[in-house]
Design a protein around this nucleic acid. Structure first.
Length: 503
RNA sequence: GGCCCGUUCGUCUAUCGGCUAGGACCCAGGAUUUUCAUUCCUGUAAGAGGGGUUCGAUUCCCCUACGGGCUACCA
């Protein structure tokens, strides 16, 4: 019997979650659902200096909006709580002590200033400073100091950190579900701080302890964590949890659309696209960052787009519902290389989803955006006409002629098409339309074309004028459909009053 | 600088040793349309470079180049 899949998304509340984070959450969600497992949200707030008000709520709201809610964790509870590290602080110390007792960790008394100084000194010599198996011999810690002195310093209340004690030269290897075997030698790693002098654990310790306690089976996170994965593997080993160590999968990064580097907030303002799922107002500066939701993107399009950043189904299908993504998802179809973000393709996804919506649904989305009182049925008809030419629902509000008679008329059309005999043609047209009982687009079209052939007129001479009188525009959807939607009375009224203007 | 990861059309990607290198976005052209859009068709465009291994390498190995990540008492 295989154990139940449990994955977690563990952001740190240091600001709004950006789309890279949402993608990580999405892949965790898809993986969990695919295997009938749990998707847990844990808040990693061990660094109180970087805490940002509202960030935690933002994460939860984002997941909910995207339709990928966690079924356990912060905000929803569960058996393994609490799910916020600041509320779990009492848990971590015993593991640090265990490491200390087993000679896998040690106390260090060096101040940040001393370490900074050491780094600068090394840099001048063209070397990189690392607190490791060699340098710790010369620094102030429990491996270099006598037991008495260590005890004295601690008893005196001197500030200290607890560092992990790495072996001098040992190969650490682990299998990454996406990248295969990754091998690093401890000679290239350093003695990471496990416990800070403020008495709080660092990410490294808290993360491993929590993943273990919460019975996490797969750690799916961004590639930026790959370098510290060996350290985590070692921690599992030293804590005696090797057998239940989760599997690792490091996702490729989302890169800037142009140029190089990780996608950042700046790229969004520069390229005119959101990098956050939801609009975010920075509590300190008051600065507002655009969000996909507020910019009019459908969550389905947003999720579909994110899924295809670094993953693909191996088929030619590109449009997926969330359920289909769950069904199709697998870690071995996740790519290894970073993906440049493409805001143009994101719009394309939105366009696709907009077209799949029913006229009724579009009507209900359109309703709050317009200033006119109209019936839902009427809006649905308008939606039918506009959905093929819109990317966002808001694009459908641009033409107001569906709701009120035009007050301005396209000059170019008037100039080029309005001829001496036009008024008489339109008048005859009106008369022809008066006779239509059922003012359907088909009937209007038949009547219109009938009139043209009877009078040996071409479409191009009459239709643009028909259009401009009724809509004010020089181009747009089928005039027969527009006329049918507006109805006989409104169409004729517009024709008549338009005629007065240009007679 | 050191360590790690990566490298197929401009972009996202398919290919798990047999390729005339496929799809999508974008762009261009054509057809349809009163017009715009849609739709349909067509086109442009790729395996970083060099060595191996092999009957055969985009696919496997090595080197170089390039890109990225990490290098905090941040996550």
């Amino acid at each position: 019997m295989s154990e139940r899949v449990r994955v977690r998304f563990a952001p740190s509340p240091t600001g709004p979650l950006h789309i890279g984070g949402v993608r990580t959450a999405l892949f965790n969600y898809l993986f969990a659902k695919k295997h009938g497992g749990d998707f847990i949200l844990r808040i990693e707030d061990t660094d109180q200096k970087r805490f940002v008000e509202g960030a935690e709520e933002y994460v939860i709201n984002s997941l909910n909006w995207a339709g990928i809610p966690h079924n356990e964790g912060q905000g929803v509870g569960g058996e393994y709580g609490p799910y916020k590290q600041s509320e779990r602080m009492h848990l971590y110390k015993e593991y640090a002590d265990y490491l200390l007792e087993n000679d896998k960790a040690y106390y260090a008394f060096d101040s940040s200033e001393e370490l900074t100084e050491a780094r600068e000194r090394s840099q001048k010599e063209g070397k990189t400073f690392a607190y490791d198996s060699i340098t710790r011999q010369y620094l102030k810690n429990s491996t270099s100091l006598s037991a008495d002195e260590v005890k004295e310093r601690i008893d005196n209340g001197e500030a200290y950190v607890i560092r992990m004690k790495l072996p001098r030269n040992e190969e650490v290897r682990f299998y990454d579900e996406i990248r295969g075997w990754v091998i690093v030698n401890t000679a290239n790693m350093d003695d990471k701080v496990l416990y800070k002098s403020d008495g709080l654990p660092t990410y490294h310790l808290a993360n491993i302890v929590d993943d273990h306690l919460m019975k996490i089976t797969h750690v799916i996170r961004g590639e930026e964590w790959l370098p510290s994965a060996p350290l985590h593997v070692l921690l599992y080993k030293y804590l005696g949890w090797e057998d239940s160590m989760p599997k690792f999968a490091h996702l490729p990064l989302i890169l800037k659309p142009d140029g190089k580097g990780k996608l950042s907030k700046r790229d969004g303002v520069k390229g005119g696209f959101p990098v956050f799922p939801l609009e975010w107002k920075d509590p300190a500066s008051g600065e507002i960052s655009a969000g996909y939701r507020e910019d009019g993107y459908f969550k389905e399009a947003f999720v579909n787009m994110l899924a295809f950043l670094g993953w693909n189904p191996g088929t030619e299908q590109e449009i997926f519902s969330l359920d289909e993504l769950v069904e199709a998802f697998s870690l071995d179809r996740v790519g290894k290389s970073g993906a440049k973000f493409d805001p143009v393709k994101t719009k394309w996804y939105n366009e696709q989803f907009l077209r799949m919506k029913s006229n009724e649904e579009l009507a209900s989305l359109l309703k709050p955006l317009i200033d006119f009182e109209v019936e839902d049925g009427y809006l649905a008809q308008v939606s039918e006409l506009l959905k093929e030419r819109a990317v966002f629902v808001s694009d459908m509000t641009e033409d107001s002629f569906y709701f009120e008679a035009p007050t301005e008329f396209d000059e170019k059309t008037i100039r080029k098409k309005w001829k001496e005999n036009t008024p008489s043609i339109i008048e005859a047209m009106i008369a022809k339309f008066e006779g239509i009982q059922d003012f359907s687009s088909e009937n209007v079209e038949v009547a219109f074309k009938q009139y043209l052939t009877d009078n040996e007129l071409g479409m191009g001479a009459v239709l643009p004028n028909f259009r401009v009188l009724v809509t004010g525009k020089g181009m747009g959807p089928s005039m027969f459909q527009i006329a049918a939607i507006l109805g006989k009375e409104e169409t004729l009224n517009r024709l008549k009053s338009g005629l007065q203007k240009f007679k």
